[in-house]
Design a protein around this nucleic acid. Structure first.
Length: 467
DNA sequence: CTATGGCACGGATT
DNA sequence: AATCCGTGCCATAG
């Protein structure tokens, strides 16, 4: 009895550190789960009601004025950045997967591909099909392709193969279009079908996609044209259509020269952990940085619980005491997590302000290690805090927080720009030369690598756009 | 012969 | 200690 308290404090100290570490590395969804389960299992933990600001409807910190409204729009004096944390958001229960389709542009909580598709599909499907659809959707690889076959699904669920194929065809039509296909060709065909309902699809597109994709990627237009008995002009139209509208890997962001900004799927599936935006959406206003917490209101140790501890029978106190310990620990760790994130972001936002405001070109090279020494934190702490988190920028794009440490992003976008502005296809070494004139010295090989990362064809295959 | 992509090495980063 | 990234070398295609 005499030893226990000290022992407890030491264990709780190390547990404290350990838990803070793990909390830092969690995604929003995981954190929410963690808190929910803790809330459910620990009677000492209490979730207080949130206070909302009467002006802007935002949740308030436990005490004090609203951090946004109290920040007058005019006083852009010295501190252009306001930090808010926490912010409630998307408090979805856990198991309401069917039913209402969310109409907000951002998917609530981090949703994986299967549930994302299922949400769209659920409303349209008869109940007996939903189960099968869910089953199918759990058999997808990271590209959104089926890892099983219609036949197997049919056998497993005792349904007719034809029913299953019909169902899969249906599923393919949901966003991302082509999901559940067996291979890229199928996926692209599905996309053609869907697109043909809303726009003109060049003739022969289906034939080319299903049979001549290989030649297409080699740019042997005339060959294909000959085989299909049409003009190579027509095939070029098809080529343009394909590269602009089709994505062979429905669940992946880009491939080859297919890359449209509004179709960056991988980013759609996250709910950002951090928001950066201008106050009232007005670019003249200061930037606001919000760190989102997955809960409404404030967590605390239930004071009633605490005070009644003394009046409890001694045989139960031990258990209760540990509950309180645990609750305290969790709260402490959460605070620390928020604090660490806040410190990190304060630095990060200042350092990468140009990027946040002006885009990819202005990304400064930065390493986690540098930030770590600046903040006097351990590198691994930064690493954990950065990984598996996403940020929504003022331009509404959601990017992984790790992008702030992408050394080559500015170079890549510069190359992209050079190629866009070229009037004559430049070779990689020519590009290297141009970059050198701008003071950027990188190897020719590296130019090639960046170029392909951006999904840009090599110079000799690009057609010159002489305007 | 030139331009590009693949492989792999070494140093930096995590 | 594991991983990522830039780069050099080499084979291949045009």
């Amino acid at each position: 009895m005499l030893i226990l308290p000290s022992q407890q404090t030491t264990t709780s100290m190390s547990a404290h550190l350990a838990q803070t570490m793990t909390l830092l590395g969690l995604t929003l969804g995981e954190l929410q789960q963690k808190i929910d389960s803790e809330l459910a299992s620990n009677p000492a933990l209490e979730l207080m009601e949130e206070r909302t600001c009467p002006m802007c409807q935002r949740p308030l910190p436990p005490r004090g004025p609203c951090p946004i409204c109290s920040q007058p729009a005019s006083s852009e004096s010295q501190d252009p950045i306001v930090f808010i944390s926490p912010r409630e958001d998307f408090y979805t229960g856990s198991a309401s997967s069917t039913g209402e389709v969310p109409e907000e542009p951002f998917v609530s909580e981090s949703v994986d591909l299967p549930s994302y598709v299922l949400r769209q599909a659920a409303a349209d499907l008869p109940t007996e099909d939903r189960v099968v659809a869910a089953y199918i959707l759990t058999h997808l690889d990271e590209d959104g392709f089926l890892t099983t076959t219609a036949l197997e699904v049919a056998r497993y669920h005792h349904r007719l193969p034809s029913e299953i194929t019909a169902l899969i065809e249906k599923l393919k039509r949901y966003d991302p279009v082509g999901v559940c296909s067996a291979n890229p060709i199928e996926a692209m065909l599905a996309q053609v079908e869907v697109l043909s309902e809303i726009m003109n699809v060049p003739a022969y597109t289906r034939e080319v996609v299903s049979k001549y994709l290989h030649q297409m990627s080699q740019h042997h237009y005339s060959e294909i044209a000959h085989a299909l008995m049409t003009s190579s002009q027509q095939i070029k139209k098809v080529a343009a259509f394909i590269s602009e509208n089709l994505n062979p890997f429905p669940a992946r962001a880009h491939w080859g020269d297919v890359r449209s900004p509004n179709n960056n799927d991988s980013e759609v599936f996250h709910q950002p952990d951090i928001l950066i935006y201008h106050h009232n959406e007005n670019p003249a206003n200061p930037l606001v940085v919000e760190i989102i917490l997955p809960i409404r209101g404030t967590l605390r140790v239930n004071p009633l619980f605490k005070s009644s501890l003394k009046q409890m029978e001694p045989n139960k106190t031990e258990e209760w005491r540990s509950d309180i310990e645990k609750a305290n620990l969790l709260i402490k760790c959460l605070q620390q997590r928020s604090n660490a994130l806040k410190l990190l972001l304060e630095k990060l936002v200042v350092l990468q302000k140009d990027y946040i405001l002006q885009g990819d070109l202005e990304m400064k090279p930065l390493t986690r290690a540098k930030i770590a020494t600046m903040l006097d934190m351990h590198e691994s702490t930064i690493s954990r805090a950065v990984s598996s988190k996403t940020v929504q920028l003022p331009n509404k794009k959601i990017v992984p927080l790790a992008i702030f440490f992408d050394r080559s992003l500015s170079h890549r976008t510069l190359i992209k720009q050079i190629i866009e502005d070229e009037d004559h296809p430049l070779s990689d070494s020519e590009i290297q030369q141009l970059l050198k004139e701008q003071g950027i010295e990188i190897a020719r090989r590296t130019v090639a690598k960046y170029r392909s990362m951006e999904g840009i064809l090599p110079g000799n295959l690009r057609q010159s756009k002489n305007r």
